[in-house]
Design a protein around this nucleic acid. Structure first.
Lengths: 360, 360
DNA sequence: TTGAAAGCGGTACCAG
DNA sequence: CTGGTACCGCTTTCAA
C-alpha cells in the first residue's frame, strides 16, 4: 500500500504569485509591498527585507501587462521585415536583438513577405499598445505602390519608426542605410583598377530604390573611369525567376564581350561564376565577379566571391539604438536623422588583387 | 505674413482614442461602448452602428495590455532558439510565424546564443505574462549541462512549452523532432546502394543528443549493410573551428581509403567536396557526399549536395500548431505528445543515382 | 513608515 | 437596451 505524502505530490501549477498574495501573507497593504519590491526609501529595511526575500523565494515576477498598462510603455520593439530566410535580414535581426536585449527590450517580429497588405495589417495589429516603436524595412510591393500612409499614421499616433535599407525617403523618420550609390561606384573602380574593361551589371531589384542607387552608381562609375556605357551589358531579372537564372544570363555572354560582372544579388553572382567557368573563362585571371551580398554563399562558392558587404548586423544595431534613444528621449531634438553605414569591399577570389597589381 | 490655419497644422500626435473617449462623445456608458464594439446583441443596431463607425473613423484599437491583463492571455508565443543565422532556425521561424499569424498570435523571439545563462534569463524575462507559451530548441550549453529546471519551472507555473529538434527528453512537454537515427541509417543505405564501401562520418555535434542519434544510425546502418565499422573513419569536430575545417579533415583522406562521407553539417559537407576534388576524386563518379542540411549552400555548391532535409518550415508549423492547440484546449487530454517529422533524402549531384543503377 | 484610493483600458456580471 | 461597478495587477499620490 502506497502512502502519498503531500510533499511528494508534484507541485502542479504552482500558480504565479501577485503583489496581493504577498500583502496578505504579511498582513500589509499592497502599496507597502509594491514599494518594498521597488526598494523605496519609504519602507523600513526590515519590511523590505522580508518581503523581498519572500518574493524571491516564491519566484515573484511583476505582471508585464499590468506594468505596461500603467506605465504606458511596453519595452518591446516591433520588427517588420520582408522575410527571415535572407541572410541579410537575419543579420539585421541579430543586431537588433543584441542591442534590444542589452537595453531590456523584447522583440516582436513580423514578416511582411513583401506584401503591402500583410505589412499594413501587421502594423495595425501591433499599433495597440503591443510595442513602443517599429524597426522596418519596407516590402517590395509597398515600395512599388508608394503608399506610405500606414507609416505616417503610426508616427502621427506617437509610435516612432526607424527604417533601414529599404526606406521610404518621404516619410519623416529615422533611417539607417548604406551608401549603395557610392558602393557601386567603388566596385566599378576596383574592377577597372584590376584590368577589367567590359563590365556588365545584373540586377534583380531594378524597380526598387536601392536597386536604382546601385545602377546609378554603376553608370557614374563607368563615366568616372572613362568607360563608355553599353546598355547591352545591363540585365534586369525578376528575383523570382531564380530557377531560370542560367538561361537568362547565358545570352549576355554569347552576345557580348565581357570580362566582369557586378550583381546586386549573391545567387546571381554564383550563377555568373558558374557560367563564366563553363564558357572557358578563368576566374579571376581573365574574368571577375563582384556581388552585393551578405550571405554565406560568397564564402563557399568556388572561387569565393568578392562582395560588397552591407554589414547587416551593424545596421541592425544602429537601428535599434536609434529607436531606443528616441523612445527614451535621449536625443532631445525631435529632428529625424539618417545614419549611413559604411560598406566594405570584401576581396575574395573572384577578383584580382589591386595591391598586387600596384606593386608590380 | 503667413496665416497658419488650424487645419494646416500637422496633426501632431493624434493621440490614441479609448473606450472612455467614445463613451463621452456619445454620452453613453463605457459598458455600452464596449458591448457595441464587440457587436453584442444587447445593444441596439442604431447605437452599435454609430459607435462602430466613429471608432473606425478615429482608428480606435482596443488596448492590448488592458485586454491581456483582463483575460489573462496575451495571444503571443515566445520563441527561444540558439541563433537566427542558421538557415534551419530561420525556416523554423518562418513556419511558426505563419501558423501563429493565421491564428492571430504574435511572436516574441529571443536568441539564446547557445548559452545556458541567456536561455534561462530570457525565459524568466518572458515568464511574467508576456507570453502564453514557449517554442524552444535548447542551447548547446544547456544540453551539455543537462540542467532543465527552467523548463520544468515554466511548465509548473502553467506556461506550456513545445520543444523542437534539440529537445530534453526528460522534460514532460510536447515535442517535434525528426527521426535522425533512421535518417542516418538511410544515408548509409543509399551510399551502399550506389556502390560506396568506405563511408566516413564527420560530426560537429557528437556531444549532443541529435548528434548521437545520427551517429548511432550511421553505425547501425553499416551493420545492416554488412559493412565493418572502422573507427578511423569517424571524425568529430568542434563547430567553432570552422576556419580549420580543411586542416582537420585532410588527414582523414590521407590516412584512409574512403569513397564517401556523411556529415552532420552543411559547411563540412562543402569542405569535404572541395578536398575530395583537390585529391583528384570525381564527385559523384568515384566519391559521394551526403550532408544533413537545410541550407542554401547545398543548392549552390559544385557539385550540388545531396542532403537529408529536415523540413524546418514544416517543423515550425507543427510546433506552433501543437502549442496553439494546447493553449486553446483543443486537445482535451493533458498528455504530452511527440510528433516526428519525416526527413527526405534530397538527391542532388554529390551522389550517384540509385535508380539509374538499378536500371543498369 | 505604512495604507487608502485612484487610475491605466478594458471586460463582464448584475441591476434596472 | 443601457448603465453601474468590480476587477485584472501594479504604480503613485496623498493622508495618516
Amino acid at each position: 500500500m502506497k502512502k502519498v505524502l503531500k510533499t511528494d505530490l508534484p507541485q502542479q501549477s504552482m500558480k504565479k504569485i501577485t503583489i496581493k498574495d504577498i500583502a496578505s501573507k504579511f498582513n500589509v497593504s499592497i502599496s507597502t509591498v509594491s514599494k518594498a519590491l521597488n526598494d523605496s526609501y519609504e519602507i523600513s529595511d526590515k519590511t523590505k527585507d522580508k518581503i523581498q526575500k519572500y518574493a524571491k523565494k516564491k519566484n515573484y515576477k511583476p505582471n508585464f501587462n499590468a506594468i505596461s498598462l500603467k506605465k504606458r510603455r511596453t519595452k518591446t520593439i516591433g520588427i517588420v521585415i520582408p522575410n527571415m530566410l535572407s541572410y541579410f535580414f537575419a543579420q539585421i535581426f541579430k543586431g537588433v536583438e543584441k542591442v534590444a536585449n542589452d537595453n531590456g527590450y523584447k522583440i516582436i517580429t513580423c514578416i511582411s513577405n513583401e506584401s503591402y497588405k500583410k505589412e499594413v495589417e501587421t502594423m495595425e495589429m501591433l499599433s495597440n499598445g503591443s510595442i513602443d516603436g517599429f524597426i522596418i524595412s519596407i516590402a517590395k510591393e509597398t515600395e512599388l505602390k508608394k503608399d506610405y500612409s500606414h507609416f505616417e499614421m503610426s508616427i502621427r499616433e506617437g509610435t516612432p519608426i526607424v527604417m533601414f535599407d529599404r526606406i521610404a525617403t518621404s516619410v519623416g523618420c529615422d533611417k539607417v542605410v548604406v551608401d549603395d550609390y557610392k558602393a557601386a561606384k567603388k566596385t566599378v573602380k576596383h574592377l577597372v583598377n584590376t584590368g577589367c574593361k567590359n563590365i556588365a551589371f545584373i540586377s534583380t531589384i531594378s524597380d526598387m530604390n536601392v536597386g536604382k542607387l546601385r545602377y546609378n552608381g554603376y553608370v557614374k562609375g563607368l563615366e568616372k573611369q572613362n568607360i563608355p556605357f553599353n546598355k547591352n551589358l545591363v540585365l534586369n531579372i525578376e528575383e523570382e525567376d531564380y530557377k531560370k537564372y542560367e538561361d537568362i544570363i547565358k545570352p549576355l555572354f554569347d552576345n557580348n564581350e565581357i570580362d566582369s560582372v557586378i550583381t546586386t544579388n549573391e545567387k546571381i553572382a554564383v550563377t555568373v561564376l558558374k557560367i563564366a567557368q563553363e564558357k572557358g573563362f578563368k576566374v579571376p585571371e581573365n574574368f571577375s565577379v563582384i556581388g552585393f551580398s551578405n550571405g554565406i554563399l560568397a564564402r563557399h562558392s568556388s572561387p569565393t566571391l568578392t562582395t560588397v558587404s552591407q554589414h547587416g548586423e551593424i545596421m541592425g544595431e544602429a537601428a535599434a539604438q536609434m529607436l531606443i534613444d528616441k523612445l527614451e528621449n535621449k536625443n532631445l531634438n525631435k529632428e529625424v536623422t539618417t545614419q549611413i553605414i559604411k560598406t566594405d569591399l570584401v576581396e575574395r577570389n573572384s577578383t584580382k588583387r589591386f595591391v598586387e597589381l600596384s606593386k608590380a
